[in-house]
Simulated scan of single mutants.
Amino acid sequence: MRSTISSGMSSWTLFALAFSSLAAAASGAWTFEDAQAVIAAKGGKAEAYKFSPTKPIKGAINLGPKDILKVSLTVKEDSKVGRPHQAFLLVQEPESKVEAFFPLNVKELSGKAKVDLSHKDLPAFLLTAPSLSLSLVLGSFGQSTASIATIGNVEPLLDPAAKALLEKQKQKDIGEGTVVYRAKDEIRHVFRADPQSPPKIITLVFLLSVLAGLGGLFVVWFPILGGNLSHLPKALKAAPISHPLFFASLLSLEGIFFMYYTQWNLFQTLAGMAVVGPVALFSGSRALREVRARRERESARRCEEK
């Protein structure tokens, strides 16, 4: 069972009109025959009410707490029995247009359809209504016109205690008062703030530590690590492209990191790395290969001198 709350025209009316517009030139229509509504009560006599697409049930049907309303009929597409894609019993409160619908169980070969309705099937905002209208909705794909046929009216019978409990449930479901539609509280979406850079003092401390490390490296490079600028002309002569390109790519990588820290996002940084990274890898391998070959030649020459 599914409940809907509507204002003005019924959603099922729109449903039928939509099918009707698609089937304006159709020669057939969905209808039914041999229809009846039976009130079955435990320990009581069943009451049957006949109805047709053009003749609804006269008067109101009383539905007690222990009663079951059994609706049965034969669905037909024009003059042949059929099984529509949509077959529902529509229960509606006439004043507020609050409605609920219940699917019919339709047999494919015979077109026999039935649905049962009792107090436990109806939500509180319908069960507390003084009167409910019953309609039958039939429609399907194809050229046959959909239809909405009025069955009649049902009056749920409730004792005062049960009605008071249902009224409380009704207020809980749709709110206080008689207004079904009303403005809801404004929903404000709070998104996570963009990540912020650390305080400048922390940035300066780390920058100075990096610069001090680089300065210390250059200080100990020549006396301790054996740095020798006299090898620079030999290196450039042996690999005039690899060494400058490798050095430039390293500077470019540092520049990319700086731009990522100050302006760029992750995608821009990855794009820059995708361009500079292969250049650094290719030129660095060639430059280091030249350095290794030169050191091996110098080591061999020293061994010969000894």
Score class of each variant (00 low, 15 high):
residue 249 S to G: 14
residue 53 P to E: 03
residue 82 G to L: 06
residue 282 F to E: 11
residue 195 P to T: 09
residue 11 S to L: 10
residue 5 I to W: 13
residue 24 A to K: 12
residue 283 S to M: 00
residue 287 A to H: 00
residue 239 A to V: 09
residue 235 A to G: 04
residue 236 L to V: 03
residue 68 I to R: 08
residue 283 S to K: 06
residue 294 R to F: 13
residue 194 D to Q: 03
residue 8 G to Y: 09
residue 146 A to K: 01
residue 182 R to T: 12
residue 270 L to G: 01
residue 49 Y to L: 03
residue 89 L to V: 06
residue 252 S to I: 06
residue 271 A to W: 04
residue 181 Y to H: 13
residue 125 F to T: 06
residue 8 G to S: 12
residue 22 L to P: 01
residue 23 A to H: 06
residue 91 V to E: 03
residue 52 S to T: 15
residue 304 E to V: 01
residue 97 K to V: 10
residue 218 F to T: 05
residue 12 W to R: 03
residue 230 S to A: 09
residue 248 A to R: 01
residue 205 V to Y: 13
residue 154 V to S: 05
residue 218 F to C: 02
residue 123 P to A: 13
residue 208 L to Q: 02
residue 23 A to F: 02
residue 199 P to D: 14
residue 183 A to S: 12
residue 52 S to M: 12
residue 133 S to C: 08
residue 2 R to P: 09
residue 152 G to I: 00
residue 193 A to Q: 14
residue 53 P to C: 11
residue 132 L to K: 08
residue 176 E to Q: 13
residue 273 M to I: 12
residue 7 S to T: 14
residue 118 S to V: 07
residue 194 D to T: 11
residue 3 S to M: 11
residue 3 S to G: 05
residue 34 D to Q: 09
residue 303 C to V: 13
residue 108 E to C: 02
residue 19 F to Q: 07
residue 102 F to A: 08
residue 132 L to A: 04
residue 30 W to T: 05
residue 238 A to Y: 10
residue 265 N to S: 00
residue 69 L to S: 03
residue 112 K to C: 01
residue 187 I to K: 14
residue 198 P to D: 06
residue 259 M to P: 00
residue 27 S to V: 11
residue 33 E to S: 14
residue 174 I to S: 09
residue 283 S to E: 09
residue 86 Q to Y: 09
residue 276 V to C: 08
residue 46 A to W: 04
residue 41 A to W: 05
residue 29 A to S: 15
residue 161 A to L: 15
residue 257 F to G: 07
residue 102 F to H: 11
residue 273 M to R: 00
residue 150 T to A: 12
residue 31 T to F: 01
residue 249 S to E: 01
residue 269 T to H: 04
residue 195 P to F: 02
residue 57 I to S: 05
residue 93 E to D: 09
residue 173 D to Q: 10
residue 272 G to T: 07
residue 275 V to H: 08
residue 69 L to I: 01
residue 255 G to A: 15
residue 306 K to S: 02
residue 211 L to S: 08
residue 144 S to V: 04
